[in-house]
Design a binder for these strands. Structure first.
Lengths: 187, 187
DNA sequence: GACTATCTACCATGTGGTAGGTAGTATTTA
DNA sequence: TAAATACTACCTACCACATGGTAGATAGTC
């Protein structure tokens, strides 16, 4: 199946990236995991960089879609942020690191295009969080406090950081909605 | 210089690990950076795993020493935690990731001994934070709130997460003491 | 004479990537 | 409609190079 193989490659490679990292997974690993020969992977993704960028681009698209969905389904800031928390958490559920976090860790060993995508990904998430918080501040749903941008930074920090700690210590200590509320209302 | 070389190797390799990751730096890179032949590195650290564990062990020692110093110099919880914040921040100042975070990212591609050290490192930091907070709760310096363990988890999450975000977005948005106080007093 | 720190010269293996072939499926053309 | 053509997805068999690691020599130091 044509499209199926490509999807399987992206999906499997994404998992590898989010457990081992970009450098530490090879076409050989991927070949074995998907059940296709190494050379056939090159047919779909001529270089590893192509594969890497495809993974991140697809992921960014997915997140963008989620953002739209959240905005459509939730009117209030807190609801939107809790929905974001939810998708962030469930994405890490299968014992996976956040994709952008995993990439960030080996940033300066990545090809330029992937470095740029990683940065773009972070900027996009921070941007959405900031805009969402600003919206809430303007509507007086939440206090301004230290500002939308700073709150966004804190929220994403907690989510990324907790993922890493849980992953490394094999704990399951998800961030709760009350933490989100603490930051949003008191930071 | 005998001891100097070993130290230079550990120091340079630590920097490489905290920018590229363990897998993505090679003995060749290290050789070039230190100005010594590849084979000579093997004289000091027979295997890469030896080098990796030496780096982490030395780092853990350093942190342990810092913890003692903090306890000696600061009587109150808030002071101790702010001192911790300070060393964490200054360690990330030169555009470096937290060592344990960088390792965590490629955890399942690491040799077992390094996986265990990484986990031990996190446990140690969480342990110290938890004990410090418990101490403060017993002395009524801070409220119990969601508990010492949970506060410790949040604090370390914020520190780790913010390091990654700053590193990836090339921003300089350090966590302020007021954030520590927010968590400690209101979480 | 043993030990330490370094070197040159290797080696086996794994890496991303290429060349070229085969079978099946569309697409064009006589 | 039938034959020729092109395209897709996969394959086997390579290649150059980088990887971590070893053998063995040399020179200086305890």
């Amino acid at each position: 199946m044509a499209v199926g193989t490509r999807d399987a490659l992206i999906h499997t490679a994404e998992n590898l990236m989010r457990t081992r990292g970009y450098t530490a997974f090879s076409y050989a690993d991927l070949s074995e995991a998907v059940g296709i020969r190494k050379a056939s992977i090159h047919h779909h993704f001529p270089t590893k960089e192509d594969l890497g960028t495809a993974i991140v681009e697809e992921y960014i698209d997915r997140v963008r879609t989620e953002f739209s969905r959240i905005e459509a389904q939730h009117e209030h800031v807190i609801g939107r942020l809790e929905a974001f928390l939810h998708i962030f958490r469930s994405s890490a559920d299968g014992g996976l690191l956040p994709l952008c976090g995993a990439l960030a860790a080996e940033m300066s060993a990545l090809p330029l295009s992937l470095q740029q995508l990683t940065q773009r990904f972070f900027d996009m998430q921070l941007g959405w969080l900031t805009r969402t918080l600003e919206h809430g501040i303007k509507r007086k749903e939440i206090p301004e406090g230290s500002g939308a941008k700073h709150k966004a930074f804190l929220l994403l920090s907690i989510l990324e950081g907790s993922s890493f700690i849980n992953w490394a210590t094999k704990a399951e200590d998800p961030i709760s909605p009350s933490v989100v509320r603490l930051i949003v209302e008191h930071a």
